[in-house]
Write a protein that binds this DNA or RNA. Structure first.
Length: 673
DNA sequence: ATAGGGTTAG
């Protein structure tokens, strides 16, 4: 595969060509505008003329002798109103030269024109003109100037203007608050909310929909929510969509949903907020249900909706549904975010051919597109392709970021490329200006552990400049399990339990490790502390898409309508693979029951039920795809490999972290996960 | 004049 040819950079053809001769065009326009009636006959023409004479040296626009000066004011007003931008600016310069001022509405129009034309220098010129008489511009003009500066990204200038304004109203404050929330200076935003009220300015719905995004703790959200209720602004759609969004981001989806349900009127953004909330909060099922409801109510999905729905599909790993959403995405084929979401959906659903096709067809690729594809390849066991793609990215892609490097290191560790991993880890700061973070360290522990360098991995953890978390210890624990190092495993498990006393997997492993070395006292102790803590056991769950429906299996639960068939199929599969060497591996069950019971409980692991169901309903031409909430156990892993071989089919199982593509008696993970 | 929703890792 020729990577260089395949992954070519999209052409950026946005050349801005501007050739404007403002004064020429102004002259034409000026000659066309002979006013019939003076707009605002305030001072006598002679006044203007004499005032203008004092200032005249600065003027590049000598007035025609025949025209009275106030016609210049009128011309300016008319140019601003008609949107003749550069002519209006030229006219303004001339006004200033003559010491004249026009009406505020014209200036308002002109500032809007500056924004529309992205004309920074002209904007500053207008600001200077409005302040040139030493007075503050009118309040609403100052506000408009502030919002102009924020739209240009000139936040310091906006702030300066705000600080120097003689008078500030709710609009000024809200604009400033928006600046702060956009900068993620959340404390500052909340402090502004307090200051404005102290100065006697009451916030309105604009203020609250902006300030809600600055709530970083549930407590601050509650206080702001109280404030909203107090001002009687809770029913505003904007405020509500913000409320839904922020409650969802704090994981309080129930509350977000309550706010949603209470609403009498909803618009598209409100729907998108609640769908996005569930999609991001991991309840893809609810997100998709709401999407269906939304369409039933006659709302047309836009890019935002579809991106959330794709994320929901990604979270549930429902490839077929994702494909259906893909059809809707075609309407917005140039939307980068949407394409990235699509790319991720295909990667996470284990369909790399589709992901490849999307990636190649994208008209524009940003760092997220490349990172998604690199991690996607690595997670699906195609590490060397991931690294090749990274090489192309270095040549013709955007600058890699923190997450890109996580994907690259993940690929190195999965391909067993210890040296490359070290190289990227050590040089990421120099090469890409990225400081190694927690996730990078985690990848390195994986890299070393996978290669069997367990002591080195432990030393690496101890030498880190931050506290190891459970993710790091679990990584080491996984390596210990594969390389059968009981001592180190016990150490890692203890560390995990110190940080997360309810980690069921760590208890089981620890107890099994002790049992293997016949240290029954310790086994007893572990089991006791597990009982004391009443460790909640998240039941294993697997699901599979068959016939446009999602079938969920829970460990030991045989309530599925086809339970009898599944039971028979399970027996058939077990006896078939027993012929090619399957022996139930009961190491993966807690050592507190007899051998037969252990085999019995293994038999009903949720992924086995799902595999049996999948095989039963399979056409053999397509791979069967199973999703799991927990990591696959070693026995089910062997089971899947052997079933794939004996039934001559591909089985794809996704656990919370990676994919297992089972084919011909082997797995893409190389028996390491 | 000021406001709300979407994509990458773990």
């Amino acid at each position: 595969m020729n990577q260089d040819r395949k992954y070519t950079r999209s052409q950026d053809s946005s050349l801005l060509v501007r050739s404007i001769n403002a004064s020429q065009r102004y002259m034409k326009a000026f000659s066309r505008c002979i006013p019939s009636k003076p707009l605002r006959p305030s001072l006598p023409p002679t006044f203007y003329r004499s005032a203008a004479a004092l200032l005249l040296p600065a003027s590049s626009f000598p007035l025609p002798n025949s025209s009275p000066p106030h016609s210049l004011v009128e011309t300016f007003a008319s140019l601003c109103q008609r949107g003749a931008f550069s002519d209006a600016i030229a006219a303004m310069v001339s006004l200033e030269g003559h010491g004249l001022r026009a009406d505020p509405i014209s200036y308002l129009n002109l500032i809007k024109l500056c924004i529309r034309n992205n004309a920074v220098d002209e904007g500053r010129l207008v600001h200077r003109h409005l302040s040139s008489d030493g007075d503050h511009p009118k309040l609403f003009l100052s506000n408009t100037l502030m919002s102009m500066y924020t739209k240009f990204g000139l936040l310091d200038e906006a702030r300066q203007l705000f600080d120097r304004m003689g008078e500030r109203n709710v609009v000024s404050w809200t604009t400033m608050i928006s600046v702060m929330t956009n900068l993620k200076r959340n404390e500052e935003a909340l402090r502004l909310l307090i200051s404005m009220q102290r100065e006697g300015v009451a916030p309105n719905m604009y203020t609250f929909s902006a300030v809600l995004r600055a709530c970083q703790t549930l407590a601050s959200l509650w206080s702001v929510h109280c404030c909203i209720v107090k001002y009687g602004l809770e029913s505003d759609v904007f405020v509500r969509s913000s409320l839904i969004d922020v409650y969802s981001k704090f994981g309080d989806l129930d509350y977000g949903y309550r706010v949603f349900k209470e609403m009498a009127t909803r618009d598209l953004v409100v729907w998108n907020s609640i769908i996005g909330g569930f999609a991001q909060g991991g309840d893809g099922y609810k997100a998709i249900n709401l999407f269906t409801q939304m369409r039933r109510m006659g709302f047309l999905a836009n890019q935002g909706t579809l991106a959330s729905v794709l994320r929901a599909c990604t979270g549930m790993v429902v490839l077929e549904m994702g494909r259906q959403v893909h059809v809707h995405v075609l309407k917005h084929e140039r939307d980068l975010i949407l394409n990235n979401a699509l790319l991720d959906m295909y990667c996470k659903c284990g369909s790399l051919d589709d992901a490849d096709a999307v990636f190649l067809r994208m008209s524009e690729r940003d760092v997220i597109s490349w990172s998604t594809m690199i991690s996607g390849l690595a997670q699906n066991g195609r590490s060397s392709d991931a690294l090749k793609l990274f090489d192309s990215m270095k040549i013709l892609g955007p600058k890699p970021n923190y997450i890109t490097i996580v994907g690259v290191l993940f690929a190195c560790s999965h391909a067993g490329l210890v040296e490359d991993g070290w190289y990227y880890f050590r040089s990421m700061k120099k090469l890409f200006d990225i400081q190694p973070g927690r996730e990078h360290y985690g990848c390195m522990v994986d890299l070393l552990g996978r290669a069997g360098k367990l002591e080195e991995a432990l030393k690496f953890i101890q030498d880190m400049n931050f506290e190891p978390d459970t993710v790091i210890w679990r990584t080491l624990l996984g390596a210990c399990r594969v390389h059968k190092n009981a001592t180190l495993a016990a150490h890692a498990a203890k560390e995990i339990l110190r940080l997360e006393p309810d980690d069921e997997g760590a208890y089981i492993l620890l107890s099994n490790i002790y049992a293997d070395s016949h240290r029954w006292n310790e086994v007893e102790q572990v089991r006791k502390s597990m009982g004391d803590r009443r460790v909640r056991k998240e039941p294993g769950r697997s699901w599979i898409e068959v016939g446009k429906k999602i079938h969920v299996f829970i460990v030991g639960d045989m309530s599925h309508p086809q339970a009898d068939g599944i039971e028979k199929e399970l027996s058939r599969l077990i006896s078939r693979i027993a012929n090619i060497g399957y022996v139930p591996d009961t190491d993966f069950v807690l050592h507190d029951v007899g051998k037969e019971q252990k085999e019995e409980s293994l038999r009903y692991h949720s992924e086995k039920l799902a595999i049996a169901f999948g095989v039963l309903n399979s056409t053999r031409s397509k791979p069967i795809r199973i999703m799991k909430n927990l990591r696959i156990c070693g026995d089910c892993h062997t089971f899947a490999k052997l079933v794939a071989k004996s039934e001559d089919m591909t089985i794809i199982i996704r656990d919370p972290v990676r994919f297992h593509h089972f084919q011909d008696g082997a797995c893409s993970c190389g028996d390491y996960w």
